[in-house]
Design a protein around this nucleic acid. Structure first.
Lengths: 336, 336
DNA sequence: GTGAAAGCGCTAACAT
DNA sequence: ATGTTAGCGCTTTCAC
């Protein structure tokens, strides 16, 4: 069942050799126009498609790339994926998505799985839990093209695309400060993530240039990126039981924002809460927190850039040794 | 670059024939325990993995399945995918996800793409726009195993998994009615979707058993499943400008709920709104609309069931002619 | 218990 | 301009 027509079938049917048919199908210049037409017509009529698996085996290329993100049910990452796919399809690549759920273990398993499935390259955004990079370093050493996006690492040199996290944070913080907020806390992501560090820097610098003190006591980290609601709740509990409660919380991600609002609602359902704002690529937060600005990352564009870089790496004739780090600007969404 | 070790390499290294190595690796009974150990040890030591592409070519099986959903950035579908993956991994299958974005055209292209990539089977949830099923019927006729989940069609017979949409809707409606709501509107999905019809039935039946009139004027459809905010806005505009405004809206999906709340906020920012409730697999709605019940679908379980069915279809020695339609119960989430 | 050889569907030297 | 051959990495008859 389900046995598609092969190149050989065409050859037999038209009384040609497989190689002639192969060349005709690839529109080779050395094939008679007449013959070419016969082959192409026959192929069209019988709905012939090259078997991609045979092609992969032959060319030692799978024309597929792997993506690894923490989760797809996240507007930022799903937008990045859309961007990646837009380029992938236009260049004849297929995309295999896999999710780490911010777990180190699953990241290792999935990356291994993808490498085994002979993807031609990898687009990676690190999991919040990952501190050891040997699994990915190994693949890089074996020559597998890898591009990092958003959550990058510096364990080795390769192309990267990120948002301008520091500036994005600074701008949003400035908007908060301009609105009159005095005690702005920071609910941060896992501490070893690149984005965490950059956003923290932006947070601190914004305070500094406004002559406000940047206290460590106003920063709480979520080591699992908000996957465990308990860790978010603990952080919020800490904030709202401070002697000098924050009047605003700058939250490092969408997922944390949801967790943060849920925790606030649960822990002090009847009080006015500190204002919540931060990085978000979702329209939902606007609904929850009218009147606040948030930082939007150019997710679709990031996906496009990352995929273009990866294709360049894959299709390069020579080993690439010069790598680019592209930084895209964020957008400050101000609501009236 | 990136040339992994092959079976032949092992054969040469251990001075065996490729067939022996192959058999040893597959733990064949006819191979000497001693030899088997040598091969396995060598393979382990050199991190040998069978080339899945060669395997696919040989076995005429790719050990990958395709999923097509409208979008991954949707809690319901991402939970289904998690369920699918949990079974897929344990049975040695890989999963290729693709998104229709509720567009007929993209559904056709993606399904074609997946079939060309020689997936062994397809897990399909129809796009909201699709009325013509010939693209998928063709593949079915060619013998490609297909399982439908959530948004099913009856163009041909195959395994399906769905939620008990009718009962789920009835129960949630009953909860609303018990709370005293008198004029409950229904914001429905695209009219030709299976889920739309079933949920509509539940809506109507709930009214009927409570001796309330089920008027067509209280139902509005979103033909693009809420992808166009305009269509949601038009529906809401219609509802809130009725002579007898609804006091509650039962919304058919998560995405529509977001659109609905956004529209309400935009169209009448300072009034009290009708209560909004409905199908949701996200925790966000609880945040937005405290105190209301919603219908939760067993998404993860649905994914597991669907994938198990697909594997059964793929691995069946004989053509399957008896098909199952599994219906899973929904859960009514009541908030205090 | 092990090996030789054929073949999955395709392409690319190397003929002619 | 077309055909012959070999081979990508693997499994599986068929030999011995």
């Amino acid at each position: 069942m389900f046995k598609p027509i092969t190149l050989k079938d065409i050859a037999t049917a038209l009384d040609l050799s497989p190689s002639t048919v192969s060349r005709a199908l690839s529109d080779s210049y050395e094939i008679n126009t007449e013959t070419k037409k016969r082959v192409l017509d026959y192929a069209e009529e019988h709905n012939y498609k090259k078997n991609p698996i045979a092609l992969s085996l032959r060319k030692r290329r799978s024309y597929s790339v792997g993506i690894i993100v923490c989760e797809v049910a996240n507007n930022f990452f799903s937008q990045v994926i859309d961007g990646i796919e837009s380029i992938a399809y236009s260049k004849g690549y297929h995309v295999i998505i896999s999710q780490s759920h911010d777990s180190y273990e699953r990241e290792v398993v999935n990356i291994q799985h993808l490498a085994n499935r002979s993807v031609d390259g990898l687009l990676v955004s690190m999991s919040a839990e990952t501190k050891d990079f040997s699994h990915i370093l190994k693949l890089h050493k074996q020559g597998l093209p890898i591009v990092f996006f958003d959550r990058v690492i510096s364990a080795f040199d390769t192309h990267t695309v990120t948002s301008n996290n520091k500036k994005g944070t600074k701008d949003a913080m400035q908007a908060l400060i301009d609105k009159g907020f005095k005690r702005i806390a920071h609910l941060a992501n896992a501490p070893h993530l690149s984005i965490t560090k950059e956003r923290l820097e932006g947070y601190q610098e914004a305070l500094r240039v406004n002559n406000m003190e940047a206290k460590d006591s106003m920063v709480r980290y979520c080591h699992h990126g908000g996957r465990l609601q308990q860790e978010v709740e603990d952080a919020i509990k800490y904030f709202i039981s401070m002697d000098e409660k924050p009047d605003a919380i700058f939250v490092a991600s969408d997922r944390l924002s949801i967790g943060c609002l849920t925790a606030l609602k649960k822990l002090s359902p009847h009080q006015t809460h500190p204002a919540v704002t931060g990085f978000s690529n979702s329209d939902i937060l606007d609904l929850l927190q009218p009147g606040f600005s948030c930082v939007r990352q150019p997710a679709f564009e990031m996906g496009r850039v990352a995929m273009n870089m990866l294709v360049q790496l894959i299709e390069s004739k020579y080993p690439v040794t010069e790598f680019e780090s592209i930084v895209l600007d964020t957008e400050l969404i101000k609501q009236k």
